[in-house]
Amino acid sequence: MLNMDAATLSPVALFMQADWVVKGVMLGLLLASIWTWAIIIGFWAKLKRLSKGSDRFERDFWKTDDIDRFHNAHVKSELPSAKVFDAGLTEWRRSTGGNSIDRDGTRARLATAMGSAVAHQIDELSDRLNILATVGAVAPFVGLFGTVWGIMRSFTAIAAEQNSSLAVVAPGIAEALFATAIGLFAAIPAVIAFNRFSHGINRLEARLNRFADGFHTTLSRELEMAG
């Protein structure tokens, strides 16, 4: 049974009674909320998967003896660690493929290649975070705009009806406040998720840098022994 009475907390009833401006605000905030949650769920799943995968990848990497075979096994991997590893190894092969080996140059190129690979991975991953930040910052204001507009309209109604009883004012104010409620409903998870995911991204970046440094150290040692 769908309750269309405004006295209940039915969002449908509140939406249907609202002004078209408030309706627009509500619709926009609803879409923002859906989009926010889609990002939150997707990001959470992705971060968890990447974190676990990177754990396993690095553990396997430090255990393996044959780097070339390990590279062949993981060349298709989507993990950031694998991408960084791939970038480093590709650069190593290119630099050591010729007859003469420039050790310092190779070290510098390796560091640059892996550093840029890390940066690229982090950039790609944190692409969606700005949406969370935007929603978290803007949604309360948009909701407040809808509320102010709705309350202005309520007061106009009071003036028009010459009647200031609570029954005349209350529905308009309830529907107006509903806009702020949706705005907060969208903004609060967005802000929490943004902070949480920023922290997660920072940790991932630190781990990738550590991995890249470790790999770089290994290759650098190889380079010395090769010479």
Binding site: M1, L2, N3, A7, T8, L9, S10, P11, V12, A13, L30, S33, I34, W35, T36, W37, A38, I39, I40, I41, G42, F43, A45, K46, R49, R128
Partner: peptide, 26 residues
């Protein structure tokens, strides 16, 4: 993953609004 997240988000909002509509928190 993001498509799955979008689906879950839409479904979750629909469920929440449905509950509110039938007077869950009335």
């Amino acid at each position: 993953v993001e498509k799955a997240g979008l689906g879950i988000a839409i479904a979750g909002h629909a469920v929440l609004f449905g509950l509110l509509s039938v007077g869950f928190l009335a």
